[in-house]
Nucleic acid binder design. Structure first.
Lengths: 191, 191
DNA sequence: GAAATTAACCGTAACCGTTAGGGTTTCACA
DNA sequence: TGTGAAACCCTAACGGTTACGGTTAATTTC
């Protein structure tokens, strides 16, 4: 994304990446619960305090790239061509995000998440933050003129669609079906 | 609700209640983060292990009565008169639940929950469980014949409505507005 | 280019929620 | 009345997390 110029920033980013990579590797090798923070730190050759300087919690090590997620959702709203209807834009973006998270390579990570209550809970609370960011983006769109409640509800419904589709047998069909519902719900709030 | 006959069960229930009452009192007096499990145990005059024999976690001490919540929602579906339409029944029940949680006496507790990330996260993951129970109840209703996806989405939307309304300025109006959306979403799934 | 500042990182020790282990009391029921 | 189980107790530990004080290396300032 952004290539930092200074050596300091580069080293910091490298440390962060090394920690994240090491953690994910160990988690997949031995299981999330069987790997302690002290193990991750030792294997990545950093101090425990350094791990927590880069990641807010053990769970955050698994969801390293969640900022991307939030940005992609909000940008699907803010960067869409003017007068393009909202719901299809959201629909398309959620479809893409779900594809990404149900891709071949993501299966072991998904299994790990589903197997750990702590990780599921963390993911859920991440989703809530994403919904709030999306709600703010909707409320800020001058073309939409809907109530804050309608924006908030639509944002949560959208996140619900993503969360359910990631766990569904047929993710694509699930997204499509729920977005039919969201479309209807959104229309029902037209001024 | 259920009055246990045996002395043992009565004593157990009394212990549980004493722990919950003591915990809530201390939390409100000194703040959730400022009170440790060891404090609660000492003040309730029980061992730390006894606290965890009755409550799965520190957060669970605050949400003592969440089983009621789940049962009320699912019963609003299963116990409604035959052929009564689903959404109004849900709407009514959510309205009642929101009223309960935004009542005068609940304000300090609500403030405490909103002030603690751990409690917010816990509440959110509770909600997810409730949504799953509700989804199961919807899927099991013989009159509804909707897809599992539609039932799951409707359940999550309903929980979303509750969660948003509890934090809204005008809870009643929020519930009403979101249920207009849910009604439309539900109709869009008619076979 | 030396000096001062700052930011990343280090190691240790502790805090706190939570659990394991193993023991004692009290109730229920045959 | 004796026996099994359930509730409870205490202690010690584990694992995520943070406070603290110190070291090094990059950046900025003069």
């Amino acid at each position: 994304m952004t290539e930092p110029s200074g050596r300091r920033e580069r080293k910091k980013a490298a440390t962060r990446q090394k920690i994240a990579d090491t953690a994910l590797r160990l988690f997949l090798e031995r299981g999330y619960d069987a790997v302690g923070i002290r193990d991750v730190a030792a294997e990545a050759d950093v101090a425990v305090t350094t791990v927590f300087a880069h990641f807010a919690s053990k769970e955050a090590l698994v969801f390293e790239r969640d900022q991307d997620f939030e940005q992609r959702l909000t940008r699907a709203v803010t960067d869409r061509p003017p007068h393009e209807p909202l719901i299809p834009a959201l629909h398309r973006e959620v479809q893409a995000l779900v594809e990404h998270c149900t891709a071949e390579g993501s299966a072991p990570v998904r299994r790990m998440i589903e197997g750990s209550p702590a990780l599921r809970e963390y993911e859920e609370s991440m989703s809530l933050r994403h919904a709030q960011a999306l709600a703010a983006a909707l409320a800020a769109d001058p073309h939409l003129s809907r109530s804050a409640t309608a924006c908030g509800a639509t944002a949560r419904f959208t996140i619900d669609a993503y969360a359910m589709a990631c766990r569904a047998d047929d993710p694509r069909a699930t997204v499509d079906e729920i977005f039919q519902m969201i479309e209807a719900a959104w229309e029902a709030t037209a001024p």
